[in-house]
Design a binder for these strands. Structure first.
Lengths: 242, 242
DNA sequence: CGAATCCTTGAGAGCGGTCAAAGGATGTGG
DNA sequence: CCACATCCTTTGACCGCTCTCAAGGATTCG
């Protein structure tokens, strides 16, 4: 019951991640805090094996045989699909608490790469299945979380299909902020080309748009890949509701 | 009980939520065949209430209180989200077997309108919850279907973010065909502006692109909103794998 | 500290959007 | 059953947002 309430609360985040197949089990998700590997309230705690991956390395590739699901405990991961000629679409950025590889398919349908050094829990499918059998409530939890991801994916469709470059970038920054609980200062550990491939733009357009937001005093770009939101209301207007 | 917890938590959303998922429960989906209301192999058979909706009518609107989920038994429905200034993104077109309104949110996150006259089964959330409690396998089935929807949503992100107009239209036509089991002749009951708002284009661009495909002998436009795929291989090359 | 990588900025081009109007299809009333 | 009105589609001309190509500058990492 308390577990269910917690999940429902996560599922109802005003602006959940833009991640895919991402499962935010822990209420600490998104605050930058890492998931604790051994938490009695976490059904996945202790399952599988946990490993630290270096920055800019591949966790699994599109088309690889899919035997496990993964959960990010700390750090950041990007998921993407590529067209034959190299065009790339980043499906989402995963942070602490998010899951990936959940599809019921024989192969992974996207590539997962670390952006920063990342701690990842690898859980064999069989263990996850066993957990769902043992705890039917867990299967419902997974359903709820997957549905939230689907909602986020639909928001992303609106962004990609109908928003201008400035609206896309503003939406992206606000999402990152909301994910950190609405903080003014956010991390941008990923490069401009990652942002571009997530928003359906080019690196040049992302850079130009950020410069424009900076000139308009809506944001301030800080050292170390950080960024401060100076005028959240103006950004929100620009974003057209994420 | 679990339902109560979910609803209470959802009611506390700071921002009206966004949408939901579409699922294909029936293997007969997309063949044009209608779902049978009383099929012993269908766990949803006989649940809720079934009604025929006229063409171009609203089933539910974004923001409406969400008390039921719906399943399309025959006909076609479009799901869309709108930006404040009227820009529209069609999330998807639903056919026989597809479900909508599945999000665990207090409000529907998108609008559902019929394209053609459509038979729709309305199932109260409480009945669906009861079914999941009674048949854990059904919850797993819903999870599997929702995951498939998520994969489709990710393909759509690639389409919207990285494909050209011609690639978008070719992908769209091939998807419709595949949904009908790969038939050469497909139905296009929706208007050009519906297609445009699904692909992130304008009606003019959709029209021009179809004309170009017609000139290139890749397709043939038939009377009554039908279309024939003349060169599936060429379309497939164009589409870059959907 | 040095070198590679990434970011920013500029100039110009092109794809798709906008505006406009003619051509067809659909549906309704006479 | 036909005439007319309305809506949708198609086509054309032009525009502008974003992309492409290019180069200088900043940052990061080994």
């Amino acid at each position: 019951m308390s577990t269910h309430a917690a999940i429902a609360a996560n599922a109802s985040r005003a602006v959940p991640g833009y991640l895919v197949s991402a499962l935010a089990i822990s209420p600490a998700s998104g605050t930058g805090a890492a998931i604790q590997p051994r938490n009695p309230a976490d059904p996945l705690a202790g399952l599988g094996h946990t490993k630290v991956h270096e920055r800019e390395t591949t966790v699994f590739g599109e088309g690889d045989a899919a035997g496990s699901v993964f959960r990010v405990l700390s750090g950041m991961v990007r998921l993407y699909k590529m067209l034959p000629d190299g065009r790339r679409q980043i499906i989402g950025f995963l942070q602490a608490g998010d899951m990936m590889g959940l599809a019921f398919a024989a192969q992974y349908l996207y590539t997962a790469e670390t952006v920063t050094a990342t701690t990842i829990q690898r859980i064999p499918r069989l263990e996850l299945d066993a957990l769902m059998d043992a705890q039917p409530a867990f299967a419902r939890k997974l359903l709820s979380t997957t549905t939230s991801e689907l909602m986020a994916a639909q928001d992303q469709m609106v962004l990609l299909g109908r928003k201008t470059a400035a609206e896309k970038v503003a939406s992206f920054l606000l999402r990152l902020s909301d994910r950190k609980g609405g903080e003014r200062t956010i991390d941008l550990p990923m490069g401009r080309s990652d942002i571009a491939d997530h928003l359906g733009l080019t690196t040049e357009t992302v850079s130009r748009t950020l410069t424009k937001l900076k000139s308009g005093r809506l944001i301030r770009i800080l050292a170390g890949g950080k960024l401060e939101l100076l005028d959240r209301d103006a950004l929100s207007d620009l974003a057209c509701g994420f």
